[in-house]
Simulated assay, not measured.
Amino acid sequence: MTSLRRRLLVLVAAVLVLAGVGTGMVLHAADRADRADQPRKGDPTVSSGKLTLSQKNRLTFVNATAGPHRTAVASVPSADPGGGRTASDLKCARFYAAAGTGVCLQSDTGILKQNNRALLLDADLRTRHTYALAGTPSRARVSPSGRFAAWTVFVSGESYASAFFSTRTSILDTRTMKLIPSLETFAITLDGKSYKAADVNFWGVTFASDDDTFYATLNTASKTYLVRGSISRQTVTTLIENVECPSLSPDETRVAFKKRVLSRTDLWREYVLDLRTLRETPLAERHSVDDQATWLDDRTVAYALPTEGRTGSSDLWSVPANGTGTPRLLIAGASSPAPL
């Protein structure tokens, strides 16, 4: 046998081995995914049904329980969040809604690339417009009037805890369909001075009711800031350091946020900031919360925590906004809450 022929046979054998290993890994991963997506004893009852954003006294969310309705937008009565849930046909990675307007961030991973998009929804969850996203969905919000929608994506890295990450935050006027592709074009005032830098990132928009004011996180020079912004003037101004993923209270006097409690770690505690005095109040939740909290009312905030012992699932918890009380399980197997 010639040297060339031997090398060819070795190459063919190696290719066959690698193909077999690759197929085995794919089948093993698929089997694990199938088993992880099977309902477990004690999981909440989920049934298909009509879901509209014009319903009152309902709490919408992304269903995280296993089964055919996994990642579907679902809802429960606000007075009975632990009861049976109604699931729509719409599936989202992130979701939010207000005043009959919804935004759904989707992510489909294909063989060659990831397809990410934002859907602007009407009250019946029908898609009004679709927008391509530059990265992996992270945060979504709608203004109280439904006039504006915002979303944040990761364009590199996988989380805010990554050593290297970049975000892109967009704001959409749902009346004119004018899209501001990135808040990085806004003029920045930091500590009273005009500021420009190549490493600027924004995330976690939350809107006031005047259809102009918003709050968000600004990251630059390894620091995070709470900023107050104006959509019409396209400006932001820093207010205080170490604030991430702000959420404005219904009375617009406070912001719930996650605060990094140890530098260079992914440990956060949930706080509430008084916007008038800039006084911070730590909440009773002791776990690290990597989420943009949602106010259920002026007294209570909700947030997602990973489900213990279940990869890829989360539960919604709630806690008093004044620092008292104890956390309580709000909805098992859920994320992205939005009270109607």
Rank of each mutant, 00 (worst) to 15 (best):
261 V>P: 06
213 T>Q: 05
243 V>L: 03
279 R>Y: 10
195 Y>R: 09
207 F>H: 04
179 L>M: 12
179 L>C: 06
173 D>H: 11
225 Y>V: 03
196 K>N: 13
252 E>Q: 15
202 F>D: 02
226 L>Q: 01
234 Q>W: 10
270 E>F: 10
175 R>T: 12
276 R>N: 14
259 K>V: 05
234 Q>F: 08
209 S>G: 13
193 K>P: 02
205 V>C: 12
245 C>K: 10
276 R>C: 03
194 S>N: 11
261 V>G: 12
233 R>T: 06
270 E>C: 08
231 I>F: 07
176 T>K: 08
252 E>V: 02
272 V>D: 00
173 D>N: 14
189 T>I: 11
251 D>M: 05
180 I>H: 00
202 F>A: 07
227 V>M: 05
231 I>K: 01
226 L>T: 00
180 I>K: 02
226 L>E: 00
190 L>N: 13
192 G>I: 03
216 A>C: 14
261 V>T: 13
258 K>R: 13
247 S>R: 01
182 S>N: 14
196 K>F: 11
195 Y>D: 07
209 S>P: 01
236 V>I: 13
206 T>R: 03
264 R>Q: 12
275 L>Y: 05
250 P>K: 10
223 K>I: 05
194 S>Q: 12
227 V>K: 00
205 V>N: 04
222 S>Q: 13
263 S>T: 15
176 T>L: 04
216 A>T: 09
252 E>Y: 09
266 D>Q: 12
189 T>L: 11
277 T>D: 00
186 F>Y: 09
182 S>A: 13
220 T>R: 03
205 V>Y: 04
248 L>M: 09
224 T>E: 09
272 V>K: 01
277 T>S: 10
174 T>P: 02
186 F>Q: 01
272 V>A: 07
273 L>N: 02
263 S>D: 15
214 F>R: 02
243 V>Y: 00
213 T>L: 06
176 T>Y: 07
241 E>G: 11
247 S>D: 02
265 T>V: 08
241 E>D: 13
255 V>M: 06
243 V>G: 00
227 V>D: 04
214 F>C: 09
276 R>H: 08
184 E>M: 08
263 S>M: 11
228 R>Q: 14
234 Q>E: 12
282 P>H: 07
185 T>S: 13
249 S>F: 00
185 T>K: 14
263 S>Q: 13
196 K>I: 15
212 D>K: 02
234 Q>A: 14
232 S>R: 15
199 D>S: 08
208 A>P: 04
282 P>V: 05
283 L>H: 01
202 F>E: 04
202 F>V: 05
273 L>C: 08
245 C>D: 14
242 N>M: 11
260 R>Q: 15
267 L>G: 02
202 F>Y: 13
258 K>D: 05
223 K>M: 11
270 E>R: 08
